[in-house]
Design a binder for these strands. Sequence first.
DNA 1: CTGAATCCAAATTGATACTG
DNA 2: CAGTATCAATTTGGATTCAG
Lengths: 134, 134
Amino acid sequence: MNRATGAVKGKRVVMVCGVPMDMANCPVRDVMDNIGGKWNSLMILSLADGPLRFSELRRLIPDISQRMLTQTLRDLQRDGYLSRTVYPTQPPSVEYALTDLGRSFLVPLKLFVDWSLQNHDAIRKARAEYDAVA
Amino acid sequence: MNRATGAVKGKRVVMVCGVPMDMANCPVRDVMDNIGGKWNSLMILSLADGPLRFSELRRLIPDISQRMLTQTLRDLQRDGYLSRTVYPTQPPSVEYALTDLGRSFLVPLKLFVDWSLQNHDAIRKARAEYDAVA
DNA sequence: CTGAATCCAAATTGATACTG
DNA sequence: CAGTATCAATTTGGATTCAG
């Protein structure tokens, strides 16, 4: 064991903000691994105003492939962010809607969106300066 | 052009919350592409309490490879989240510290961390139920 | 309409060895 | 100490085809 960090080799323990975190079972990483995906948070934002059908989401996000739309929706449903309702019409229609959990996630998500909009220029500037040196 | 969405094929325009977003130049995605990485936000949290040296970060996060530590730090520096200071000692030591931008990002980041800790159980439960059906 | 299945290209990451 | 360079393994994403 590493006395300085409390880390045990093979146990993937990390110290962050003075708190030991088991990286193999870290809640933050567990959440981020899902919503950090390429389309996941955009999908949640797209459903913020109300339920949408599969084909509506496809039109709303024109550049997502069918494969990724299906997979993203399934991943988000699996973690409880949204519900999937099948209406037995012919042909069938499927509606996706945020759950309470999904709606509660809109709070930190929107704060992140706001921060991004406010600081995007600063980031682009920093990036340009960094690249100029190199 | 798609009249329903305002999307122009090949222009990657997406409607979200009623606002058209150019996916090819979306501020939110631009920010997330960097801090959404596997180690990036953990790195920012690790530096929240003060500057750390390269080797200190390595000890703090035992399961990151040297390659990813270097790359993560460089990416975050490039976007202006942290500064890199070289002390010309022998052997050299390099100190990494959050910038004002990096510290300001701690606000939405910590809100996300809190949300994750509070809702992790609900997510695990939803996941278990989903898997049980399948 | 709403997917599932398959194949393949590209991007990410890890392991290892080497350097000023 | 603080990296760089290289290669292999894994993951991810897109395109296409098929199906209930």
